[in-house]
Design a protein around this nucleic acid. Sequence first.
RNA 1: GCCGGGGUGGCGGAAUUGGCAGACGCGCUGGACUCAGGAUCCAGUGGGGCAUAAACCCCGUGUGGGUUCGAAUCCCACCCCCGGCACCA
Length: 961
Amino acid sequence: MGEPYNPKEIESRWKDFWWERGFFRADINDTSRKFYYLNMFPYPSAKPHVGHGRNYILGDAITRYLLMRGYNVLNPMGWDAFGLPAENQAIRHGIHPREWTMRNIAEFKRQFRDWGVVFDWDREIATCEPEYYKWTQWIFLKLYENGLAYRAEAEVNYCPTCDTVLANEQAVGGRCERCNTPVEKKTLTQWFFRITAYAEELLRDLDALDWPEHVKTMQRNWIGRSEGANVVFRSERGDEITVFTTRPDTLWGATFMVLAPEHPLVEALTAPEKRAEVEEYKAFAARQTEVERLSAEREKTGVFIGAYAINPVNGERIPIWIADYVLMTYGTGAIMAVPAHDERDFQFALKYGIPVIPVIAPPGGTAKSYVRPGTYGEGLLGALREAGFAFQEVDGALHVTLNEEESERYISLIQRHLRPGSWTAVVGKGWCIVTPDAVHNIGSLAEERAALEALRNLDPSLAGKHTVAEVLWDVEFYRDLLFHAEYGEMINSGPLTGTRGDVAVKRTIEWLEERGIGKAAVNYRLRDWLISRQRYWGAPIPIVYCDRCGIVPVPEEELPVLLPEVERIGLRGLSEIPEFVNTTCPKCGGPARRETDTMDTFVDSSWYYLRYISPHDDDKPFDSELVNKWLPVDLYVGGVEHAILHLLYSRFITKALRDLGYLEFGEPFARLFTQGMITYPAYWCPEHRWIPPKEVGEGRRCPRCGRELEVSVVAMSKSKLNVVSPDELIEKYGADTERLYTLFMGPPEKEIEWSEEGLRGAWRFLNRFWELLTEWIPRVADAPREFDPTALPEAEKALWAKLNETIHRVTREFESKRFGFNVAIAAIMEFTNALEDYLARGEPNPALLRRAIRDLTLLISPFTPFIAEELWSRLGEDGAVLEQAWPTYDERALRLLAVEIPVQINGKVRARVRLPHDVAGDAEALREAVLSAEEVKRHLAGKEIVKVIAVPGKLVSLVVK
RNA sequence: GCCGGGGUGGCGGAAUUGGCAGACGCGCUGGACUCAGGAUCCAGUGGGGCAUAAACCCCGUGUGGGUUCGAAUCCCACCCCCGGCACCA
């Protein structure tokens, strides 16, 4: 037996060793073998938990591997140190946010040290330090100078709980991303970054990034590019109303127009008699919270404003409505409504009695006709059969289904059999109303009116119907054909009638452009980035307002605009600190007021990866020359929760700085890896709120009131009291156990539940590992370092082969995209098991054993560096683990062994044959060897071999009869 | 609805990318040690059949079909789950 494993003692010995020996200090001037590894820096909120650990332990393992592979690794760490929680703490407890933040930072650093997670601490930054935010302000000024930062009045999202406005990206589903409060709409004058100027590039450049597909998809969705056309309609008075549409091919079917309630023309266009109604609706729309507006299945509402527009393609006069399903913030805030081919417009038209004109042939070319009971003569059924039309009789009514070419023939037939005063319709490629002596095509508004008139005259029960569509909708049989959004042949479309669906959009745009009534256009869902925050704990926006000079940027040499030191921070942030607000104009020297908003903390984090290169430079934000050599970041690792916000903003800032001449690259993160969160059960008592898992007893009841608790397995968070603290684990099992389990629990990109049992599995393994190695290390101290593998007996060859296979499997996970360290560690465990078995069998070969212990120690070192360093030092090798080359894999090792070749007979494995590697590796030899093997012959008795497939080194497959 | 990613034992997950499905670990079962064990160690563990045992056989990677000597892996259709977006014209 070896020594008992005492992690506490081992870990205290090596805790500071790696940093002190300088292994993690990057040589910034040597970029020949550089590797920029970066973990997303944390917001230092309270104490880190094992969920944080996952991120940094993963990064530490990768870094240690890269160091052993001889890379000059830059792996810095810093703090996303501005932000609301610190400020809220400050307001509540009177402690300064800096103090609170610094305390947490110290806590994080201590934790990293305990974990054995080392960074290049010489490059530590904190975004709340003036030496950092000075340059955040500098970036603001550069963007401002170049028209990429601007101040505008806009409808913005306001979170009443956080007392500040939010960016679009931070109002998720109409709720504050941070606190889940429904956001309110407010019209305010705020600062924006013009990220939309880069919409196209942000979208296009995604293709070349080595990022997870789902993150790229999220960004694509967020940017939301759509292609179409802008078409200019005019009001009857002559005002131009431009609409954006992705379906210009449906233009002839526009039967009304809808403006967003806030559209600037609404005021001027509204007819006097509609004014009151319109005002009321606008007020109603403004009252709606985002959450209400977004609620699914909400019925569409709107009002007619008493004005008409002229459709430029066919001169049709169409009513103008306002409705809140049209958003002022997308496209032009005005749409042409084509109810026949847009579901929303269809619902709206049906509700408000607006005509529907089909202008695109439906897919499949089917048409339907419904003939009411008692409206047709005796001979119709026979005639239909004779003519070969498919129909069904349902309670005396006929359901006729036609294909495209049959419609005309059918119409003339049905006309002969309809009773006088009766009618039917044919709905398919266009709609028509058929009476015994007329056919009304619904191809224009006038035709639609005429058809409706005819119907009303025939059938008094239709007097209350407003449109033909309404009449047809009442017939269940027609419903699936009344509206469709597919592309198809254009019909009822004037000169473009007959244009095929696959070219319809393109042809229509050309046609519009030739006539100057519209042109191709692209729209994005992405909005400009609102960066103003009405809070104290952030980087002040470096702007001064002067009554004489207007908006004046603070001159570069006066940066930073420092946060004022105050006794107490109030709810109104900087605006309630007169010493800060009142200043002099940098231009004219007259009295002026400072901008009191601070910047969104995402601005701070959108450029920090540049600052690490020259973190203490007082003259510039970053050293362009070095940054151009070190960036893009080779590997960026963080949570998916930043897939849109932080990653999109950073990409934008990088592109902007490139265009301003400070950078030579346009993407900050060449490769991205998103790791999943660690979850844990959280218990909720309706009365006592969140209950820590430890206090939950048998039967899942509240320890205080005995009520049954609701359980949910969710990401660890302090607020839900379900965090697992590393301190207790490390005290009990040591950091190596936590590290090993964290990496072993599952593939790192997946969310996974923390388990104390699983952790103990890692603990058991390390104990076994330690005892085994410490038992044998003293016995191989004097063993030779070299040996000839080919001269080993079979059992030793097997161990040697297994060792090489293990090196291969572990290395592969570092080199792969997935960092499947669960598999790498499994391989190490397997080898340890094999080594145990080998040692149990008798006297080992000392040279081989020494080599196995040596390589095994190096292989496990990125995962459990403490135990590895300790074992290494006892092995009597030179230097530290991180000074060793990563073990290499000798392919020849596997060839030393006999291989077991499975033999399939008719697709099933029926025998296994052990063969020397060179026999198994040669197709012909393999075939011969297998066919002559006894256990194969046994299965072949009395059968005829039809085919033999021999795959060298893999298997032999026989087909027999 | 659109887009992306997935469905493998009781659980987390492996499977060198078309070649022995279930590695490794957790859990579970039995045993050992023990006053005791929720500690530790040993053995077993996909389902079923046969059975003293060794051995052997059948089924099995969401469902149905296909390609192939051979499919978890490739193709077609469908079902389900997760994530993102969604009144975006």
